[in-house]
Design a binder for these strands. Structure first.
Length: 795
RNA sequence: GCUGGAGUGGUGGAAUGGUAUACACGUGCGACUCAAAAUCGCAUGCCGCAAGGCUUGAGGGUUCAAGUCCCUCCUCCAGCACCA
């Protein structure tokens, strides 16, 4: 029977000791032998669910392993505590968001400690702390002074559920809000924006330098959506010039009409030249009524209206071509106008067919039109015969166009009409001109004299405190900005603050940044690919350009963990009622068991796992057997078991380094199975415990101390495999005859082909397969395989 | 449609081109027990009494040897999509 252990008592005891002795703090070290391992800071929702365990307890294995390997590892934890849920919960409970958040943070800190993680609590921070958001605000003012932040106008995404504007990245593909699920409306209103588009090229190009999974890099490239092409000017019959963007300037000779987006400014501007203004205007109105989804539905039939009375001159052919407005051309992309080449673009082709417009092929192809591949030019005057590539530059040069890139990425809109966020540190003078709040007045505190209830109007507009503060400092007639910042701003730089979290004169000292940053390893969820990860890369680059950051990329290596799904295989959510709180398992089976079980599910990087508790007993049994073994240690052990121990060490180390904790755990199990049978000395057992310590920190610490060790096992060194034990004298290799596996032979490791064949001939099991055959070929791969090819001898 | 990734037992999953199904769960049988739980032992891909044969989404190919490499498909997941 296995020795049961009281996991609750053991875990509580060691958690308290670790906190008292502060063994996981990193202090103020400056060292080369250091590493920064980051996990995404959580929102303090009030209860720890299984997803938090997966996010924090499993990377903890890696952190403890590196620390035991002698590396000083920063593994900080903090709280991303601004945002809508606090507001909503606070409204529901009639508490202030601040009180609700503060309560949750202290409660959650306790819960996080109950996981037994090796967090560097001396480096924590919290986005709602004025000492933190003072710097968020200061960076914003620096961005404003340097024209990275600006007050923009335009169409924004309005979420009716959240009662606020949200950024493009926060709208899902189906046009709903990533947070509330409501259908997003388009509204025209002034907005605080950050010029992330100015960084589009660097955000794409610098991906090359990062050790990130390819799919994340690719998703970011697609999100930024760089198209290489050219802008070409067409002259309208009104005398106005209009620029179009095209990725295929080589097809300019095939441009048989022009299309403007309905919202193109030139449409209204040319009103007096348009003979069918009523019809044109009616179309613009219908498009305006359509919601985004309708307009972007590419399966519907194309619509549009010809602008009567205006033509455009094709600069290549010098022919006058008609001009249309149509909603398949988007106002916000490129120049909001296109040259239509129906022969070589499917959308233009469909439109041309519907409106009976000429289709002129200019790229040779044997396929039916429209063809969109490159080729040799025809019907293109002096450019006939050139390849598409050659023609691109030649034609652009000839018509005075400009080679340029266009991006799908839009600037980041960061103003929110909500209460619980960082106040945008801007004040307006009596003429309405915005001014940044000077540094000496930061933090620009969030006033507490308003009802946070969202109404669509920014709640801060009702604050007398904020109004009076503004007038007291800046003078009568000055008014405060009343919007708060998107919470993704807070998380765009938290990893920088961790390293210098008590600095009250700088956001993070450059020397300290140079010591710790960039983050060596960043564990997080896939949902952040085109939000947080993109925003914080941009933020870092903007700071770098201003000399405030030591590096231009924040995270060297990224690991996207999978998701723990509900038992029904769906994403856990309160509304589906499939959320697993691991409290029960932690109470009855212990934190070590829960942690190891999660690590055992499968490789950390990659797939999603439906949470199924049925297997957790296996881990608990394993830990009980490890504990039980401490009372049955042997005086001596076989060489074989020593060899197995060292093999296990080697296997566990490589598995941890590739984040395959599941196979590391299976190696522990295999070894334990053998050790129980064969007997293990105390010396080897202590090595085994150290090897297991990152996986089961409480239990190993307890046994370690019971066996008389004084210092924490987590400050001991991680075992290293000794080469002399890694190789056995003999090796079992398999034997194939004519491609079929027929048996095995045991050989000395350094055996050659001749010895292998001799062994095969001697084996009764094997020789029958080739005894009466002619052996035509033998392949011998040392330590692997003997492969024999025969042909039938004539009888 | 484009891009990235994945398809292996009843389940989670394992396998530098070299013994496919490790490890664990589950299941079955047995031991212990008045009994049950717990624990321990054995078995457990499929067909077959056996000998043997078959098996990594489907079909081809390369190779002495393919889950792994190549080609053609199918299915699922994720991102992008009237982006010129």
């Amino acid at each position: 029977m296995h020795k049961k252990f009281d996991s609750t008592a053991i875990e509580k005891k060691w958690q308290t000791k670790w906190q008292e002795s502060k063994i996981y703090n990193v202090g103020e070290v400056i060292t080369n032998n250091r590493e920064y391992v980051l996990v995404e800071w959580p929102y303090p929702s009030g209860n720890l669910h299984i997803g938090h365990w997966y996010a924090f307890a499993v990377p903890d294995i890696y952190v403890r392993y590196r620390r035991m390997s002698g590396v000083t590892v920063l593994y900080p934890m903090g709280f991303d505590a601004f945002g809508l849920p606090a507001e909503n919960a606070a409204i529901k409970r009639s508490l202030s968001p601040k009180n609700w958040t503060d309560q949750n943070i202290s409660y959650m800190r306790e819960q996080l400690n109950s996981m037994g993680n090796a967090f560097s609590w001396d480096k924590t921070c919290n986005s709602t702390d004025p000492e933190y958001y003072k710097w968020t605000q200061w960076m914003f003012t620096e961005f404003f002074r340097n024209n990275i932040a600006y007050r923009g106008k335009g169409v924004v995404n309005w979420c009716p559920g959240c009662n606020t504007v949200i950024a493009n990245e926060q709208v899902l593909t189906d046009g709903t809000c990533e947070r509330s699920g409501d259908l997003i409306e388009k509204r025209e209103m002034p907005q605080w924006m950050l010029r992330i588009t100015q960084y589009a090229d660097r955000l794409i190009d610098d991906l090359e330098t990062l050790d990130w999974p390819e799919h994340i890099k690719e998703a970011q490239r697609q999100w930024i959506g760089r198209s290489r092409g050219a802008e070409i000017d067409f002259t309208l019959s009104t005398g106005e010039k209009i620029a179009v963007f095209t990725t295929r300037p080589d097809t300019l000779f095939g441009a048989t009409y022009l299309v403007l987006a309905p919202e193109h400014p030139l449409v209204v501007k040319s009103k007096n030249h348009i003979n069918n203004w009523a019809e044109v205007n009616a179309y613009v109105e219908t498009v305006r009524q359509k919601d985004e989804q309708e307009r972007l539905d590419n399966t519907k039939e194309k619509t549009g209206v010809k602008i009567a009375g205006i033509t455009a001159l094709n600069p290549a052919t010098n022919e006058n071509i008609p001009v249309f407005i149509a909603d398949y051309v988007l106002g916000a992309y490129g120049t909001g106008a296109i040259m239509a080449v129906p022969a070589h673009d499917e959308r233009d082709y469909a439109f041309a067919k519907k409106f009976s417009l000429p289709v002129k092929a200019v790229v040779a192809s044997s396929e039916a039109l429209p063809t969109t591949t490159a080729g040799h030019l025809i019907n293109s005057g002096e450019f006939d015969g050139l390849t598409s590539d050659e023609a691109k530059t030649a034609i652009v040069a000839k018509v005075g166009g400009r080679l340029c890139n266009t991006y799908r990425l839009r600037d980041w809109s960061i103003g929110r009409q909500r209460y619980w966020g960082v106040p945008i540190p801007i004040v307006y003078d009596s003429t309405g001109k915005p001014h940044p709040v000077p540094k000496e007045h930061l933090p620009w505190l969030l006033p507490e004299d308003v009802d946070p209830k969202p109404t669509g109007e920014a709640p801060l507009a009702k604050s007398t405190v904020l109004k009076e503060r503004t007038e007291a400092i800046f003078g009568a007639g000055w008014t405060p900005e009343v919007e708060t910042m998107d919470t993704f701003v807070d998380s765009s730089w938290y990893f920088m603050r961790y390293v210098d979290n008590r600095n009250d004169t700088e956001l993070a000292n450059l020397e300290i940044q140079k010591n710790w940053l960039p983050v060596d390893l960043y564990f997080g969820g896939a949902e952040h690919t085109t939000m947080h990860l993109l925003y914080s890369r941009f933020w870092q680059k903007a700071l770098f350009d201003l000399g405030l950051a030591a590096h231009s990329e924040p995270y060297k290596k990224r690991i996207n963990r999978g998701l723990i799904l509900g038992p029904d295989g769906n994403k856990m959510s309160k509304s589906k009622g499939n959320v697993i709180d691991p409290d029960e398992q932690v109470r009855t089976l212990g934190a070590d068991t829960v942690k190891m079980y999660l690590a055992f599910l499968g490789p950390y990087e990659g797939s999603n796992y439906p949470f199924d508790l049925s297997g957790i007993a296996g881990i608990r049994r394993f830990l009980e057997r490890v504990y039980g073994l401490s009372e049955h240690l042997a005086e001596t052990e076989t060489e074989e078991i020593t060899r197995q121990l060292h093999k296990t060490i080697a296997k566990v180390r490589t598995d941890i380094e590739s984040f395959k904790f599941n196979t590391a755990i299976s190696a522990f199990m295999i070894f334990l199975n053998q050790a129980e049978k064969a007997g293990l000395t105390k010396e080897s057992y202590l090595i085994f415990l150290r090897l297991l310590a990152p996986f089961a920190p409480h239990l190993t610490e307890e046994i370690w101390s019971q066996l008389g060790e004084v210092d924490s096992i987590h400050q001991a060194t991680y075992p290293q495999a000794k080469a002399q034990w890694l190789e056995a004298d003999t090796v079992v290799i398999s034997v194939q005859v004519n491609g079929k596996l027929r048996g095995t032979i045991t050989l000395p490791v350094q055996a050659k082909e001749a010895e292998a064949m001799a062994a095969a001939r001697q084996s009764a099991d094997l020789q029958k397969y080739f005894a009466n055959q002619e052996i035509t070929k033998v392949i011998f791969v040392p330590k692997k395989i003997l492969s024999i090819i025969t042909t039938q001898l004539p009888i």
